[in-house]
């Protein structure tokens, strides 16, 4: 473990006062001083998309388009006690540049980069982690590094693989949400039973939160 900061292992707030705010992915990485595992990556990705999709729907209901948030780093992703994930909303930031509107494609790309960096945490620049093909494919798709014959789909960087549903009849909602729903589908398809995705991924994040708190408490006691 990182011994550079003896007074606060991993820089995590150990007073259990995080309440609804949870633990940031950055805090989790620092505390463990190692990357997240693949299952956690799938889960965090899924839960982030759920959170962003909900935010998109709220903004859409207020007549707003675009995204005020592009995920700048692991500090912007907070895992809550119940396993839900909060993606920090730039709306309250004093940094006015974060109030710019971003497309869903840009937000998905930023999420893919954050997830990859969490998997790559602590590795040297000359090293590369060997990811399972499905997870590498997911990140490829999210960050749009897949070669696709120059025909970049405008449907948020993803092919329209799903049937039209009621939501798809609203053009603005399609623009905002299709990319996220396709990421959710890819994450669900990773499971033996895709219909279990909401419960499963929330449980993985809930365990990630609990284990991190336990480790933090343990390190505090040792200190």
């Amino acid at each position: 473990k990182d011994k550079s900061d003896d007074t606060n292992p991993g820089g995590v707030n150990m007073d259990c006062g995080d309440g609804e705010e949870g633990l940031s992915l950055e805090e989790i990485l620092k505390l463990y001083n190692q990357p997240i595992n693949e299952e956690q990556a799938w889960a965090v990705c899924y839960q982030c998309c759920e959170s962003l999709l909900q935010g998109s729907r709220r903004r859409h209901s207020r007549g707003a388009g675009g995204y005020a948030r592009r995920i700048a780093g692991a500090a912007d992703v907070r895992v809550r006690r119940d396993g839900t994930v909060l993606v920090q909303d730039g709306q309250d930031s004093s940094d006015k540049s974060r109030l710019s509107m971003f497309t869903a494609t840009e937000v998905i790309e930023s999420l893919g980069i954050v997830i990859y960096k969490a998997l790559d945490y602590g590795l040297k620049e000359t090293e590369e982690r060997e990811l399972s093909p499905p997870l590498e494919h997911l990140i490829d798709r999210m960050t749009n590094v897949v070669e696709n014959d120059g025909d970049v789909s405008r449907d948020e960087g993803f092919e329209a693989t799903e049937e039209e549903d009621e939501e798809d009849k609203e053009p603005q909602e399609v623009f905002n949400s299709r990319g996220f729903r396709n990421v959710l589908k890819l994450c669900a398809a990773h499971l033996p039973s895709p219909s279990d995705a909401p419960d499963h991924y929330q449980a993985v994040c809930r365990a990630l939160y609990a284990e991190t708190r336990d480790l933090g408490t343990f390190l505090e006691k040792i200190k």
């Binding site: 595992n37 693949e38 060997e130 590498e136 590094v145």
Partner: peptide, 23 residues
């Protein structure tokens, strides 16, 4: 805590890390 299990290889020019580092 148990260490995460993963394999590490030298960074490859055509690998995902190289592609993402250019973004």
């Amino acid at each position: 805590k148990e260490k995460a299990s993963y394999n590490v290889r030298p960074k490859h020019d055509s690998g995902i890390k190289a592609k993402l580092s250019m973004k």
